[in-house]
Lab assay of single mutants.
Amino acid sequence: DLPPEQWSHTTVRNALKDLLKDMNQSSLAKECPLSQSMISSIVNSTYYANVSAAKCQEFGRWYKHFKKTK
């Protein structure tokens, strides 16, 4: 379990794929700090720029909290 400071584009993509087993992209976009188009691009590997470090950390913090509450 990585601390949010160490999250990267790959970590975010893997976490998104895991979350999308249980929910669809639009529900996920309402919950998490990423937009639906960004989620779609990341999981389909069409998001060519890497997600910014700040966004990765924000998502990492959100993901840890989300997993605790589920």
Results as ranks from 00 to 15, higher is better:
Lys55Arg: 09
Ser35Cys: 04
Ile39Lys: 03
Asp18Val: 11
Ser35Lys: 09
Glu31Asn: 10
Glu5Ser: 06
Ala54Glu: 12
Val12Ile: 14
Ile39Phe: 03
Lys30Leu: 11
Lys64Met: 14
Val43Arg: 04
Glu31Cys: 04
Ser45Gly: 12
Asn24Thr: 11
Met23Thr: 06
Lys30Ala: 10
Ala49Leu: 08
Lys68Asn: 13
Asn14His: 04
Ser41Arg: 14
Lys68Thr: 13
Gln6Leu: 12
Phe59Ala: 00
Ser45Tyr: 10
Ala49Thr: 10
Ser41Gly: 10
Tyr63Val: 04
Leu28Ser: 01
Leu34Arg: 02
Val43Ser: 05
Met23Glu: 04
Ala29Gln: 06
Ser52Trp: 02
Lys30His: 15
Lys55Gln: 09
Ser35Gln: 04
Leu16Cys: 06
Pro4Ile: 13
Tyr48Glu: 05
Leu28Thr: 01
Leu34Phe: 14
Thr46Lys: 13
Ser45Ala: 09
Trp7Val: 02
Leu19Phe: 05
Arg13Cys: 10
Pro4Ser: 09
Ser52His: 05
Arg13Met: 04
Leu34Glu: 01
Asp18Gly: 09
Leu28Asn: 00
Ile39Pro: 00
Gln25His: 07
Ala15Tyr: 02
Leu16Lys: 01
Ser37Ala: 14
Asn44Met: 11
Ser37Trp: 09
Asp1Ser: 07
Asp22Trp: 10
His9Ala: 10
Ser27Gly: 06
Asp1Gln: 15
Pro3Leu: 12
Phe59Tyr: 02
Asp22His: 13
Gln36Val: 12
Met38Pro: 00
Ala49Asn: 10
Ile42Cys: 05
Asp22Glu: 11
Tyr47Met: 06
Ala49Gln: 13
Gln36Leu: 07
Asn24Gln: 04
Ala49Pro: 10
Met38Cys: 08
Ser35Ala: 07
Met23Leu: 05
Tyr63Pro: 01
Thr10Arg: 11
Ser52Ala: 07
Leu28Lys: 01
Asp1Ala: 04
Gln25Tyr: 09
Ser52Asn: 06
Ala29Gly: 10
Lys70Glu: 15
Gln36Asp: 05
Ile42Asn: 01
Cys56Glu: 01
Trp7His: 00
Lys68Asp: 04
Ala54Ser: 10
Ser40Ile: 09
Pro33Glu: 02
Gln36Pro: 11
Gln36His: 15
Lys70Gln: 11
Pro4Met: 09
Asp22Phe: 08
Thr11Arg: 08
Thr46Ala: 13
His9Pro: 15
His9Ser: 15
Tyr48Cys: 14
Ala53Ser: 06
Phe66His: 04
Gln36Glu: 15
Gln6Ala: 13
Ser45Leu: 05
Arg61Met: 13
Thr69Trp: 05
Ser40Gly: 08
Thr10Cys: 13
Glu5Gly: 04
Leu20Ser: 03
Thr69Asn: 04
Ser37Met: 05
Asn50Cys: 09
Arg61Gln: 13
Arg61Ile: 10
Cys32Glu: 00
Leu34Trp: 05
Gln6Pro: 05
Leu20Glu: 04
Arg61Val: 14
Cys32Val: 03
Lys21Ile: 14
Lys67Gly: 05
Glu31Tyr: 06
Ala53Arg: 09
Lys67Leu: 15
Pro3Asp: 15
Ser8Asp: 06
Lys55Trp: 03
Arg13Glu: 12
Ala49Asp: 13
Arg13Gly: 05
Ala49Cys: 14
Tyr47Thr: 10
Glu31Lys: 15
Lys21Leu: 10
Lys67Ser: 10
Ala53Leu: 15
Glu31Trp: 03
Leu34Ile: 05
Ser45Asp: 05
Tyr48Ala: 11
Met38Glu: 15
Ala54Pro: 04
Lys70Asn: 06
Thr11Leu: 07
Glu58Arg: 02
Ala54Asn: 05
Ser40Pro: 01
Glu31Asp: 09
Ser26Gln: 08
Gln6Thr: 14
Ala29His: 04
Leu28Val: 07
Thr69Glu: 14
Gly60His: 05
Thr69Ser: 04
Ser27Ile: 15
Gln25Thr: 12
Ala54Cys: 05
Asn44Cys: 12
Lys55His: 05
Tyr47Cys: 13
Pro33Thr: 02
Val43Ile: 15
Ser52Lys: 06
Glu58Thr: 03
Cys32Pro: 01
Gln57Glu: 12
Phe66Val: 09
Pro3Phe: 03
Ala49Lys: 14
Tyr47Glu: 09
His9Phe: 07
Glu58Trp: 00
Asn14Ala: 11
Lys30Met: 11
Ala54Tyr: 10
Lys70Gly: 13
Trp7Thr: 03
Ser37Lys: 09
Met38Val: 09
Ala54Lys: 08
His65Arg: 08
Ser8Gly: 11
Ala49Val: 11
Pro4Thr: 11
Gly60Val: 08
Lys30Glu: 14
Asp18Ser: 10
Trp62Met: 02
Ala29Glu: 10
Tyr48Phe: 06
